[in-house]
């Protein structure tokens, strides 16, 4: 099924269901990737760079939609292109590859630097991510659903087949404690 409306795509991403999310992402790939791909390739990038930039753009878009703070005064196409354009400019700047960028879309908007912070990587984040894997599926699921997917506790309880919100909260709290113990015992955090 083709989904054309931006509002439908936003709802699918906000739903927190993996299947809905993937339908939206697929639609974004089908309809919005080409201008971004061409923008990167026409400006000193290769197809691999283009794929990376598009994926990073989708991640930023995902978080902005989850936070309910992406600019609704422009289309998703413009917004996604603007994010990717900004990301590619940054990458070009750091590698000093090109000075002036030639665009494939006429319209783009300024992007707040803070929205790109999610893409920053460091060793500490990697270590915590590895600890998360060590916690087991149950803990990983509840912490990811709450802190990453921003799903409410009542809904998490329902989806995970837990008795009620309080049970889910207790489980989350137990998982956080386990994670903190792993951090405390790790030489990285000493």
């Amino acid at each position: 099924m083709q989904i054309h409306e931006d509002t439908t795509l936003i709802k699918l991403i906000q739903s927190g269901k993996a299947m809905d999310n993937d339908r939206a992402f697929k639609q974004l790939y089908q309809t919005h990737k080409d201008p971004i791909f061409n923008m990167v390739v026409n400006n000193s990038g290769d197809p691999e760079d283009a794929e990376d930039i598009f994926q990073d753009g989708l991640i930023v878009l995902y978080h902005q939609i989850k936070k309910g703070s992406h600019e609704l005064n422009c289309s998703l196409k413009t917004y996604l292109y603007s994010i990717c354009r900004n990301l590619w400019l940054k990458k070009l700047r750091t590698s000093s590859r090109v000075v002036k960028l030639s665009d494939t879309l006429k319209h783009y908007i300024p992007i707040e630097e803070s929205s790109l912070r999610t893409l920053e990587e460091n060793e500490q984040k990697k270590v915590i991510s590895e600890f998360l894997d060590q916690l087991g599926e149950g803990c990983k699921t509840i912490l990811t659903k709450f802190y990453f997917e921003k799903i409410k506790m009542t809904e998490i309880a329902q989806r995970m087949g837990l008795a009620n919100e309080q049970v889910a909260k207790n489980k989350k709290s137990g998982c956080m404690k386990k994670l903190k113990v792993l951090m405390k015992n790790s030489s990285f955090f000493k």
């Binding site: 500490q124 991510s129 600890f131």
Partner: peptide
């Protein structure tokens, strides 16, 4: 710090 680690983990899965 934990939230940032979880976000990193989630982003990796999204990719």
């Amino acid at each position: 710090e934990i939230m940032e680690g979880i976000e990193f983990h989630g982003n990796k899965n999204l990719r």
